[in-house]
């Protein structure tokens, strides 16, 4: 119990750290904070514009008041104002986050399931031929950057054989709301989701395989085998319960990794998600927007860690009822 409370606390602290440095960074870095907060270089602004931004950004008020305004923008969900795009940051993000989640969530689920099943299988028959082949394969795969996987898939499946589309999430002229649109969307999602799944798989597989392999030497497995229990029962009812925890923790921590991976993949597949938004924001020096995106991803990360910790608590009676129960 204590451990999970601690890890949830750490996640919250991490979240607060990001909140804090989002506030401090533009004000601390050399250069006028106006440049960082509005996105326009100081030299390009007239005196009246500078005074306008000073007032709009509350830069003349004392630090704690500025921090108050900043916190307010987080609490009321606006996340600040993008002067480059003339919109509230959260609106820009809400428009795009759907696409990012459509890629990253299926990829998280798929890679978790495949990694779990495959890793459990390979670890259960450790040092078998299949284990050696698949483990070597995934070690190699682990060394391939996700954008390279995406490029290979595009070349093979979009250019050599025109099986899948390589840009966007919908074909031209598709209107939302009917079955055709849905099928078209799925067809567009196949490659990005597959890429991200393949990119996220090796770490999950290797963790699962290695924990399973070392748990196979535990006496309770030997005892279960001596009792003549079949492999399925041992695997699912005995082994999994004992080793699932680090795996779940890792999945919780890697949700934000997958969102990050999705940012890269969106750029390859020209999908208008948060990743595109972020690179656009970086190229146009739209600092408030960048900070908003960082805030949102950290929030997603914190939430996913808390959820997985809760799942661990529910699954493991030792954690819930104290160590003496074990």
């Amino acid at each position: 119990m204590k451990r999970f409370v601690k890890s949830m606390l750490i996640a919250v602290v991490c979240f607060l750290v990001v909140v804090l440095w989002n506030f401090i960074l533009p004000r601390l870095l050399p250069g006028n904070p106006i440049a960082y907060l509005s996105g326009y270089a100081e030299e390009d602004l007239t005196a009246s514009q500078i005074s306008y931004y000073r007032a709009a950004l509350h830069l003349d008020e004392p630090g704690y008041r500025q921090f108050g305004y900043y916190l307010k923008s987080l609490v009321d969900g606006t996340l600040g104002y993008s002067f480059k795009k003339n919109t509230i940051v959260s609106e820009l993000i809400m428009e795009r986050i759907g696409a990012t989640l459509q890629i990253s969530l299926p990829a998280v689920i798929l890679s978790t399931m495949i990694g779990l099943l495959w890793g459990l299988n390979a670890g259960y028959r450790k040092n078998g031929v299949l284990d050696q082949i698949s483990t070597s394969l995934l070690i190699v795969l682990n060394a391939v950057p996700s954008f390279v996987i995406a490029l290979i898939l595009i070349i093979l499946l979009c250019f050599q054989n025109r099986w899948f589309p390589y840009t966007g999430l919908s074909s031209n002229g598709m209107r939302p709301g009917n079955a055709g649109f849905f099928a078209d969307r799925l067809w567009h999602l196949v490659l990005p989701v597959f890429t991200l799944t393949v990119a996220a798989l090796p770490s999950r597989y290797l963790l699962m395989r290695n924990t399973t392999a070392s748990a196979m030497d535990a006496p309770y497995i030997l005892y279960a085998r001596l009792r003549g229990l079949d492999a399925g029962t041992i695997r699912w009812r005995y082994l999994l319960k004992n080793i699932i925890q680090p795996f779940l923790t890792m999945v919780g921590m890697s949700v934000s990794l997958c969102v990050g991976g999705s940012l890269v993949i969106e750029n390859v597949f020209s999908i208008n998600g948060m990743g595109k938004l972020l690179t656009d924001a970086v190229y146009s020096l739209d600092y408030p927007l960048m900070q908003g995106i960082l805030f949102v991803t950290t929030a997603i990360m914190t939430a996913s860690i808390i959820v997985t910790d809760l799942i661990c608590l529910i699954l493991d009676p030792r954690q819930r009822k104290g160590e003496h129960y074990a």
């Binding site: 750490i10 602290v13 960074l25 533009p26 934000s256 990794l257 969102v259 924001a281 600092y287 990360m301």
Partner: peptide
């Protein structure tokens, strides 16, 4: 505590944002 916080941070996005600043 600092270690624990840095383990969690979404690294790629933080790096992208900070490289834009720095």
């Amino acid at each position: 505590g600092i270690i624990n916080v840095f383990v969690l941070l979404p690294r790629l996005i933080t790096l992208i944002v900070l490289s834009a600043f720095i």
